[in-house]
Amino acid sequence: MAEVLVYVDHVDGAVRKPTLELLTLARRVGEPVAVALGDGAAETAAVLAEHGAVKVLTHEAAEYADYLVVPKVDALQAAVAAVSAGGSLAAVLVPSSAEGKEIAARLALRLGSGLITDAVDLEAGDSGPVATQSVFAASFTTKSRVSRGTAVITVKPNSAAVEAAPAAGAVEALAVSFSEQATGTKVTSRTPRESTGRPELTEAAIVVSGGRGVNGAENFAIIEALADSLGAAVGASRAAVDAGWYPHTSQVGQTGKSVSPQLYIASGISGAIQHRAGMQTSKTIVAINKDAEAPIFELVDYGVVGDLFDVVPALTEEVKARKG
């Protein structure tokens, strides 16, 4: 059976959820071989094995943290060569983060392979893996495949369920020699983002977002209170971010994060195309807005026309009461 390389996104050995989702998809097209790089790489093996990785290729070096993107491309290229030498390679899957897409793109170019980004589903096809993408602010769904070389595909978070599928997960050291370009862009400092204690926005099952209607940074407390009652992540529309009410890292929309949770609650958001582009693929959409004519109501499964300052706190109380 052909193998599928899965690039592991981890923080000091803690594997992030989208990588486990990739393993679910990888198993549909071949045997997953994971590639984990940098500090803590070997510690990823146990959880990767639980979710289907037959092998885990690891390499630790300071270059992965000290220089941008290229060292990781060099390593992934080495992994492709190692797997191809011993068998056949069906695809390379990479999580669709900003960095993941850059790594995948440079790898595809080096391999002379086609590239598909931001897939939301993946299945085996007669001529290689078929990727589903959601385009034009999610108004169209396309099915694409790579027509040359080994398919290099990046997959968005929440595209598949995390499934237990125990496999060997044998750790093997990957030999990597860095290219001349590897040290081109130096990372001179790194400030970790402060943890909010809430789920990661792109990975969360529930997202509660606030927009222009929230009308001030201090008022985001009521959005956060609802999010916390539901165990949700907090998002914001571009209008709210541009006004300085909430950080850009929480922006949902075309120039921010694209989210696809089970439940999306939009509060005081009109639903402009820029916002819809980032949330339209959510499974269930709920909106609260004063304006009955707001375009967001065209998307909702359930909508409340009303003042969010009345409805959101009432909802929060009700959720807390029901959860006991």
Partner: peptide, 27 residues
């Protein structure tokens, strides 16, 4: 190096339930 085999317009979301808040909206 990639081929798009199909492009389908996403079906419009079926109309949801919209209620007006008369004091019970949150509930």
């Amino acid at each position: 190096w990639t081929a798009v085999d199909s492009a389908t317009e996403r079906p419009a979301r079926t109309a949801g339930t919209i209620v007006k808040d008369e004091g019970e909206g949150g509930k």
